[in-house]
Computed example of a mutant assay.
Amino acid sequence: MKLKIDENLPDEVAELMRQAGHDASTVLAQGLGGHPDPDIAAVCAAEGRALLTLDVDFANVRRYSPSSYRGLIVMRLARQDKLYVLAIVRRLLALLEREQVDGRLWIVEEERVRVRE
C-alpha cells in the first residue's frame, strides 16, 4: 500500500510501515510541512497514497469525501505521545493486511476502528 504519513506523526511511523512492506513517504520529507490540509489531500490524491494522520479535520466527509482518495486513516487517540502512537500503529498494521482502506475513511481509536465509505 502507498501511504503518506502526516507531519503530526513521528518519523518512526513511516519506518514501521516500510518494514511491513508498505511504500510510505512523509509530508515533511516532501517539503510539505505547514501546508494547508487541502494541499496535503491533493498531493495524496495525485500520488495515489492513503493518508495516515492525527488531524481530525480529515474525518470531515463533506470536505474530504473518502471515495476521492486511496484512503484516509485518522487516528483519534486520547494520548498522542510517541510511544503510545507507535503502539497503536503497530496494531493498525495487522488490520491493514486484512482490510481495504481504498475509498474509505478509517477512524482509529484505542479500542476500535470505525469505517465510513
Rank of each mutant, 00 (worst) to 15 (best):
A45R: 15
R104Y: 15
R49H: 01
Q100W: 06
D81E: 14
L32S: 02
R116N: 00
P10L: 06
A14P: 12
R90G: 05
V13P: 04
R104M: 09
R90E: 08
G34R: 09
V101R: 00
E47A: 01
L51Y: 10
A45H: 10
L92T: 13
I40M: 03
G103N: 07
I5H: 12
E111P: 12
L52K: 08
R104C: 13
A41H: 08
Y64A: 00
E47N: 02
S67H: 03
A24Q: 07
A78D: 13
L86F: 07
E111L: 12
V115K: 07
E97C: 07
D102S: 11
A24K: 04
A45V: 15
V56Y: 07
A42L: 10
R98V: 05
A24I: 05
L92D: 07
V56E: 14
L72D: 00
S68G: 11
Q100E: 13
G34Q: 06
V61N: 09
R76D: 14
I73T: 08
V27M: 10
L83R: 12
K82T: 15
L93H: 12
L96K: 01
V61D: 07
L72A: 00
S25T: 14
G33I: 07
S68L: 11
I40E: 02
H22V: 00
M75G: 00
L52W: 08
R116G: 00
M75H: 00
A87Y: 04
L83A: 14
L93R: 14
V89L: 01
D102M: 06
P38S: 07
S67E: 03
E97K: 13
R63C: 10
V89F: 01
I5R: 08
M1K: 10
C44A: 15
P36G: 09
A87C: 03
G21Q: 07
V13Q: 02
D11K: 07
P10F: 06
R114Y: 04
R98P: 00
P36S: 09
D102F: 09
K4C: 02
L28R: 15
I73L: 15
T53R: 04
R79A: 10
G33V: 06
V115T: 12
L51Q: 09
T53F: 03
V74I: 14
A20G: 12
S67T: 03
I5Y: 07
K4R: 05
D23V: 00
P66V: 11
P38D: 04
I5W: 09
V89R: 01
H22S: 00
I73W: 05
S68E: 08
R116T: 02
E47F: 00
V85Q: 04
